[in-house]
Design a protein around this nucleic acid. Structure first.
Lengths: 241, 241
DNA sequence: CCATCATACTTGTCTGTACCTGTACTTTTC
DNA sequence: GAAAAGTACAGGTACAGACAAGTATGATGG
């Protein structure tokens, strides 16, 4: 039952050495986001090592979130220098009030939402629901409320039990081998519903900025659906193009 | 005898990539409802892939309900942006580029705006000001109001005299050799000021979506600064990434 | 005018080949 | 004994080609 401790050890063998070379090529941009790596057999010839060694290197790179590999096709760079879809999404949410916000998790559980599944074209209607609210640290003013829905899949079924890794949903999903790649976003302004208003402590009908994002993996699989309600007196969205 | 059951799930790679390109063309309206897609062989040539790959892409699009294909004839778009959007509740009646809207020019003249020049880091504070308002063609509901400011430069000094080319500012600027390349955008929600409220015929204080864009040429020169106020009951902003 | 035919398209289905990753196992090396 | 190398096979992906079957069109002949 020793399990050889996964691989967290530094271990300075050949696999690690090769992984470091490839990692350098990726981080330096020599291998750009979306590029296909050489096939395992090509890497075997390039480094004059066995295929099992190459595979260890690649699996290490995958663990670090730099690449994903698809059977029958190859490995692809999933690392983007300027993190595309990080926590705030591609649009930086500029907090006018400064960084004095506290985040509170309202719930983290498995829910069934057939309507959303239908909209996203999913077969299963099971999601992991993560609702969070952010308030001003000092005066407690509501800043934003965020509903995150992650389609249920085997890799993350323990999420509601184990909780988030480092408090970050993105880190947790990356751990599970899910890398955001592309998506869509809608932005509009809507009056606050009764439920959300109650949660956030505003009067119903107050206009809030709403962003809805669908984030997909490189394979086109829906990875996350996020609805954010942003207090317009605290938030502006910003993007460069 | 496994037979792999037709189309379990597209992994990743060419079929998905091509499906995404076509899906984008469909969702953007470039391929409208009822349009016929290119034949499979044309797509083979267009994307330089084999026919089986093209067919996987098409079957994936069919699975998503975007197209249907008839043997001996071809594939047709069955996705109607409006209908689906409404049914799915994604967007409220999205005003599609000029669909049922009339645009009225409020003013087109040369103005001086030192504050704006300061913000944009320009030496001259002279701008061409183009203010336009859009209303619903049928019921006259206000849709949006748009303040455009173009830094004064020799190429366009006759603009206020000659007017717009084909009624399009973009076409006019392109005519003058100015091509938009990159920029920044801020999005927030603000209460309508008294002046704009008067123009647009709403009560002051009504919350509107506001977008502010700075568009630059490839050389980094500021080409245009636009402030748009969008009626949130008519507009949602959409973006793919 | 009308029916029929040939032709040129379309999609549907099937083969075979080449290459890819996934996995299990044995052998060699240090 | 652990790490690496080597071997073998299974399963997935994509390409290329061939053929069948459905559809539209125009030419032909009555």
């Amino acid at each position: 039952m020793a399990r050889t401790v996964a691989s967290s050890a530094i271990a300075s063998g050949k696999p690690e050495k090769i992984a470091r070379i490839l990692e350098k090529e990726i981080r330096s941009g020599q291998l750009a986001h979306g590029d296909q790596l050489q096939s395992e057999n090509e890497l075997v010839r390039r480094f004059s090592v066995s295929r099992s060694t190459v595979r260890k290197s690649l699996s290490e790179l995958a663990r670090r979130g730099l690449i994903t590999t698809s059977v029958g096709i190859g490995s692809f760079v999933t690392f983007d220098g300027n993190v595309v879809a990080d926590e705030a999404g591609w649009t930086k949410a500029l907090e006018k009030a400064g960084a004095n916000a506290v985040t509170r998790t309202l719930r983290l559980e498995i829910v069934s939402d057939p309507a959303l599944a239908e909209k996203l074209g999913l077969e299963s209607s099971e999601f992991i629901a993560l609702d969070r609210i952010r308030t001003h640290a000092v005066d407690g003013h509501p800043i934003s409320i965020e509903h995150s829905r992650i389609p249920m899949m085997p890799e993350i079924e323990t999420l509601p039990v184990k909780g988030l890794r480092d408090g970050s949903l993105q880190a947790t999903l990356r751990e599970a081998g899910l890398h955001p790649d592309h998506g869509e976003e809608w932005i509009d302004a809507v009056p606050l519903g009764a439920e959300d208003a109650g949660i956030i402590g505003c009067e119903p009908g107050a206009m809030f900025l709403r962003t809805r994002r669908v984030i997909r993996t490189r394979e086109g699989r829906v990875m996350e659906h996020i609805t954010s309600l942003l207090n317009p007196s605290h938030f502006a969205l910003h993007r460069e193009f």
